[in-house]
C-alpha cells in the first residue's frame, strides 16, 4: 500500500521559464490541475496549480476588460514567477493512509512524490486516492451491500463472515461504520451476489439486526453532547 503503487509515474512537468499561458494550456489539454517543475537533474523545484494561475490572472477579466498594457504584462509572466517553491512532497515509502491523512491536513489536491535525492518520481492526486478508495470499497464489481447492526464485542465479525461463507458467497469488502449508537457498530459486507435473500434470513435467525437501508450511514458525524 505504498503510494508508489497508486501514483502517476509519467509525470507531465513544465519548465520554470515557460509562460503562464503555456502552463495553462498544458493543464487544459492534459486534463490535469498540477504541474511540477524540475531542474535539469530532475530535482523538484516547485509546483504550479490551476488555482495559482487563476488567482494571478482571472482569464475572462483580462481578455474582455484588461488594457493592452496589462495583457502584455501578464503574457510576460513566467512559471517561476508564480510557482510554489519547495512544495510539500511525499516519499516513495509513504503509504496510502499517510497520503489520505496528509491531504486532509494540508488541504492540497496533489503531492509530488520524490526519492531520497529530491528527484521527482511521480505525482499522487486526490483522484488517485479516490480510485484506490473505489477499489477498496469493491463497488467496481457487481454485488449487494447489506447493513448489519452488531454489538461491540470480540468475534461478531467472524460469525457474519462464517454465515456468508456457508452460503458460498464471496466478499467484495467489509466496511465498518466507526460511529454508531452507543456500544454498537454498523457492519456493511459488500456481497458479490444478486442473491441475498437467504443470507439475510440467516443473519436474522442468528439474532443480528438488519439495518433499514434508508438508515444506512458509513460516515455518521458524531453528535455533540
Amino acid at each position: 500500500m505504498f503510494v508508489s503503487q497508486s501514483m502517476v509515474s509519467k509525470v507531465i512537468t513544465i519548465d520554470k521559464d515557460a509562460s503562464v499561458f503555456e502552463a495553462q494550456e498544458k493543464m487544459a489539454s492534459n486534463g490535469i490541475r498540477h504541474l511540477p517543475i524540475v531542474n535539469s537533474e530532475d530535482i523538484l523545484i516547485g509546483i504550479i496549480t490551476d488555482r495559482d494561475i487563476r488567482s494571478t490572472m482571472p482569464y475572462r477579466l483580462i481578455k474582455e476588460t484588461g488594457s493592452a498594457k496589462e495583457r502584455e504584462k501578464l503574457a510576460g509572466l513566467k512559471v517561476k514567477d508564480i510557482m510554489t517553491q519547495d512544495p510539500q512532497t511525499i516519499d516513495l515509502t509513504y503509504t496510502i493512509q499517510d497520503a489520505l491523512l496528509m491531504i486532509q491536513k494540508k488541504k492540497v489536491g496533489a503531492f509530488p512524490v520524490v526519492d531520497d535525492n529530491g528527484k521527482l518520481k511521480g505525482i499522487l492526486s486526490i483522484r488517485d486516492l479516490l480510485r484506490a478508495f473505489i477499489n477498496v470499497l469493491g463497488i467496481g464489481e457487481p454485488g449487494t451491500l447489506v447493513g448489519i447492526e452488531v454489538t461491540e464485542r470480540v468475534g461478531q465479525l467472524k460469525k457474519i463472515v462464517d454465515a456468508v461463507t456457508e452460503e458460498n458467497i464471496s466478499l467484495g469488502s467489509v466496511l465498518v461504520a466507526r460511529t454508531w449508537d452507543e456500544g454498537k457498530r454498523a457492519v456493511f459486507p459488500y456481497l458479490l451476489t444478486n442473491n441475498v435473500v437467504r443470507i439475510k434470513k440467516k443473519l436474522s435467525d442468528l439474532g443480528y439486526k438488519l439495518i433499514d437501508p434508508m438508515k444506512w450511514s458509513l460516515d455518521r458525524i458524531p453528535k455533540k453532547p
Binding site: P142, G143, L145, V196, P213, W216
Partner: peptide
C-alpha cells in the same frame, strides 16, 4: 444501485 445489485 448503492442499495442493490449490480451497483450500476
Amino acid at each position: 444501485p448503492s442499495f442493490t445489485f449490480p451497483g450500476t
